[in-house]
Every structure is written in structure tokens, then in C-alpha cells.
């Protein structure tokens, strides 16, 4: 291990001494790739210098905290300003290339020391690369999650289709929390509008599990206590199968295959009928 410490020191000295040269080369190479155009030259130089120095710390004593901080920062900025994953990764790899070349030049003619230096260099570089990739992935996952949350929070609209008739088009994944909110909202709306029929359309719900099915059942029962009948439409064949397998009793629920059929039934229940003008 003492050997590794010596190698580390040598590399850090090498990278420190040749900072100006390597930085210039790195920036030029990155420019040739025509990436990182989102940053102004000054900004880019500053960021690159920071990365360069942060990575020196990692080489010196295996402290990756600075690298991690920068990786997170860059991942976040990249996501915000539309810098692609490609651009970020290629830039990092370019720094690696530039330094690797320097190592070859420094130890040419001394194969054993070159191999030692490469061993250590590769180890630290690989680790840094994986930190950057992880940071980017984490950032993207966070964004996806935020977007999912935002979608879930899109309050499910309860539409008044006719006097005393509500339509509730359910869309997307329904978890228990969202289901609970939908139930409350619907019951409130029934009271507000005096609805006597509710059409609940499930066409946009990909998966129905036990929890969702139970919430639906609860909704139907509670709505009934408020004097409103519920018609459920758009249950997909797969979901129908799930419901049957789960042994949930839907006998007290009116179901129709499509929203169209459901709305027809709704008008029937309201005692209305559709007719073409002039028809008897």
C-alpha cells in the first residue's frame, strides 16, 4: 500500500505541475467534440477548473466528497439546462484521456512504473466516472418521480354531465392515497350537486389491484349512502380478471363495457331518453 501512496503522490504532482497544459488540452478537446455549448467560455473554464481540482483531491487521498458534490451539481445543471448526458460523460472521459496521455509520456521507457501508475489512475478514474453516472441517474430518477407526483396531484376532475349526473374519468396509476382523495372529492361533489348517478370511467387506469378495487367498492357504497348510484365503465379484460380473482363482489355495482354504454345507462336511470329530433 505504501507503493500506492507513492504513486498517488507522483500522479498528483504530475497533474498539478501540468495543470495549465492539461486544462488547455482538455478544453480544446471538448470544444472539438462541439459539446457543452450551453455554458459560456468563462463559465466552462471555471467549472472545468473546479472539476480538475476536485479530482486531484480524489487522487491525493481517496477523498471523493468533492467529486461527488460536483457530480451532483453538474447533473442538476445538466438536467435544468438541457445539457445531455452524452455531453457530460464525454467531457469527463476527455479529461481522463488527456491525463492518461500525460502519464504515458511521463513514464515512457519505465514499464513497471507506468503499469503501477495506470493501475492507480484507472482505479480512481473509474470510481469518479461511476460517481458521475450515478449522480446523473439519480437526478433523472428524481425528475421522473417529481413528474409522477405532479401527475398524481392532477386532481381528478369530477364533471357534472347533467342535472344530478356526475362523470369521473380516472386516469393513471391509482395508489391508496390518491384513491382516498378521489373518494372524498367525489362524495363532496355529490352533496354539492345533489347527483343521483355517478359514472366512473376506468379506461385510463392501467392496473387495478386489491387496494384500488377496495377503494372503488368503498366509494360505491358510500355514494349509495348519499343516495347516488354508481356505474363503472371501461374495466379492461385484464383488470376484470384481477377483480374476479380477488373475489371482490361487484354485484351491487352497475357496470358497462364502455363509457358510451355507461352514459346511456345513466340517462336511463335519470329517466331521460335520447331521440333524434322529429323521431317518435
Amino acid at each position: 500500500m505504501a507503493g500506492e501512496k507513492r504513486v498517488a503522490e507522483e500522479l498528483v504532482t504530475l497533474f498539478e505541475e501540468s495543470e495549465k497544459e492539461l486544462m488547455d488540452l482538455w478544453v480544446r478537446k471538448v470544444n472539438q467534440l462541439r459539446v457543452m455549448k450551453g455554458l459560456s467560455p468563462e463559465e466552462r473554464d471555471r467549472e472545468f477548473k473546479n472539476i480538475y481540482r476536485a479530482s486531484l483531491k480524489a487522487f491525493r487521498d481517496g477523498d471523493y466528497s468533492e467529486v461527488e458534490r460536483y457530480a451532483n451539481k453538474i447533473a442538476k445543471r445538466g438536467a435544468l439546462e438541457g445539457i445531455s448526458v452524452d455531453e457530460i460523460l464525454l467531457s469527463f472521459l476527455k479529461l481522463r484521456d488527456v491525463r492518461m496521455r500525460k502519464i504515458f509520456i511521463r513514464y515512457q521507457g519505465d514499464l513497471p512504473r507506468l503499469l503501477d501508475a495506470l493501475d492507480y489512475f484507472e482505479k480512481v478514474s473509474n470510481r469518479m466516472f461511476s460517481i458521475v453516472v450515478s449522480a446523473i441517474i439519480r437526478e433523472r430518477e428524481e425528475i421522473i418521480q417529481e413528474q409522477q407526483c405532479a401527475m398524481l396531484e392532477l386532481s381528478t376532475p369530477v364533471l357534472q354531465l347533467w342535472d344530478e349526473a356526475l362523470v369521473l374519468p380516472l386516469i393513471g396509476v391509482i395508489d391508496s392515497e390518491r384513491a382516498a382523495r378521489i373518494v372524498e372529492e367525489l362524495l363532496g361533489k355529490i352533496v354539492e350537486t345533489g347527483a343521483s348517478v355517478v359514472v366512473m370511467d376506468m379506461t385510463g387506469v392501467p392496473v387495478i389491484d386489491t387496494a384500488v378495487a377496495n377503494h372503488i367498492l368503498k366509494t360505491v357504497q358510500a355514494a349509495k349512502l348519499l343516495g347516488a348510484e354508481t356505474i363503472i365503465t371501461g374495466i379492461s379484460p385484464a383488470n376484470a380478471q384481477t377483480i374476479v380473482t380477488l373475489g371482490i363482489d361487484l354485484s351491487m355495482i352497475h357496470t358497462r363495457r364502455t363509457l358510451r354504454e355507461g352514459i346511456k345507462l345513466m340517462y336511463e336511470m335519470l329517466g331521460l331518453e335520447f331521440k333524434k329530433r322529429g323521431e317518435q
Binding site: 373518494v183 372524498e184 362524495l187 363532496g188 355529490i190 352533496v191 368503498k218 357504497q221 358510500a222 355514494a223 349512502l225 348519499l226 343516495g227
Partner: peptide
């Protein structure tokens, strides 16, 4: 039976 409050209805079901 009329006038069941929404919260009461849901609680009864639960």
C-alpha cells in the same frame, strides 16, 4: 334515511 354526511357515509362503509 336522508342527510347522511359524506364523512359519516365513508366511515360507515369502513
Amino acid at each position: 334515511v336522508v342527510g347522511i354526511q359524506p364523512a359519516v357515509a365513508l366511515t360507515l362503509v369502513e
